[in-house]
Design a protein around this nucleic acid. Sequence first.
RNA 1: GGCUCGUUGGUCAAGCGGCUAAGACACGGCCCUCUCAAGGCUGAAACGGGAGUUCGAUUCUCCCACGAGUCACCA
Length: 481
Amino acid sequence: MTVTRFAPSPTGYMHIGNLRTALYSYLVAKHDGGKFILRIEDTDRERLVEGATDVIISTLKLTDIVYDEGPNIGGPNGPYVQSERKEIYLEYARKLIDLGAAYYCFCSKERLEKLHESDSTSGYDRHCRNLTKEEVEANLKAGLPYVIRQKMPLTGTTSYYDEVFGEISMKNEELQDQILIKADGFPTYNFCHVIDDHLMGVTHVVRGSEYLTSTPKYVLLYDAFGWERPKYVHLPLLMGKNEDGSVSKLSKRHGAVSFQDLVNDGYLPEAIINYIALLGWCPKNNESEFFSLEDLKKVFTIDGISKSPSVFDFEKLLWFNGEYIHKLDDEKFLSLVKPFVKTQIPDNLNYLKMMQLLKTRISKLSEIDDKMSFFVSLGDYDKELFLNKKNKISDYGIVKDILTEAKSVLSATDNFCNDNLFSSLLTVAEKLGVKTGTLMWCVRIAVSGLLATPGGATEIMEVIGKKESLSRIDFALNKLI
RNA sequence: GGCUCGUUGGUCAAGCGGCUAAGACACGGCCCUCUCAAGGCUGAAACGGGAGUUCGAUUCUCCCACGAGUCACCA
């Protein structure tokens, strides 16, 4: 069975690149009907962030990426938080020492720093690699602090096959004797993820391509233990555009790049998922761009993953988001948009009608407040807005005539629904001998005070009602005197 | 700097030896229209460079250039 995992370190926010990794990892498993595990990699005790795991869990919940095993739900391979597995790693590290693939290192940080100062290009000088058994015993007995390092082969090459990048080879001389267990007794990522992946039965390691060149070291670990190597699926990086036009790994400086940022800005989780699914992956039959998570489970295959990094495009995400919003049914839209409505809504306003007009005209929920403000209250405006070349309105006389006539017709109308308003106003156009467009232009400006509005004059009047419509027309007439 | 990977329009991308090199976003134009949005039509826009292999290279190989990643007691 295909088993994958998502193994974030709890940093306090869900980076969008991380989310994509989670998504792909999930899809690799679910496409095969496999199992998806969430594991928390919190071995860096200095960077612990309170409540960070909750952010991860809630994000996965919101995006509907459900895991079969994980910290809060348990499972047969728990615990799923690495800090709770400390003893396991130590045990395996000692085993590795017995196997001759790792060794104790008693070098002080000071010594290492000095080493780095004198030669910053090559890493650790393997000073403790050949300590005798007696020396090690003595040091341990003396209580010297130590780390455990991996003993890399000095010659030859290590290769592995990556499912998206193909064969990757590294000369062993390039590999550092990296630290497996830190002085505080906690393991490094380089070690514990291998142990966990093996113990948890992970078959496909799905992660960002920043691990492409360190994977030979991990492969060596599997080999040393005599374990079967997992399949590797390295993902092309997500890049952000810098101000100077260059690109680099997507990070905070590129703007709102955490899932939570985007949601708070009015992006829908479904739209985010849809967009990032397409960043670095393309469906075999690429006729449609719209995919629900269920669709993705069906069509996602590893061979559709591309090798080249992709630039995160906020424009396209915005477009996707708009598409998703426009397709929402009214009820759903109303409930989603509610937290973004800060303005106090007057009682006489047709809220539903207004939202219907707005729904198809916003691309993210946070736009709602600005876009609806003119319905709620009329702002002051310049009477020049009435002048319009296309409708041949070049002086205020005609505007005044139209509004005066419209006012009298509207005063006599009680049914303020769009269709009725429209047909009533048509009689005004007829009477004055002006085109519908000309008439509506004037009325619309009067009732909105804006050059461009969501919906036409009659729709706006339907929303704001008779009393407010007439009062706004009066306001306009006063302006024209 | 060493190593590893990558390079199709501004961006996402299809293509896997022979094509007028798809499509989407963004941009321009036109249509529709009670303004806007949506929708429809349409335009401009790409194979980094050089050698090879081949009857034929965007596609295969090599070199170069450029870009990115990585070289931590971070993951």
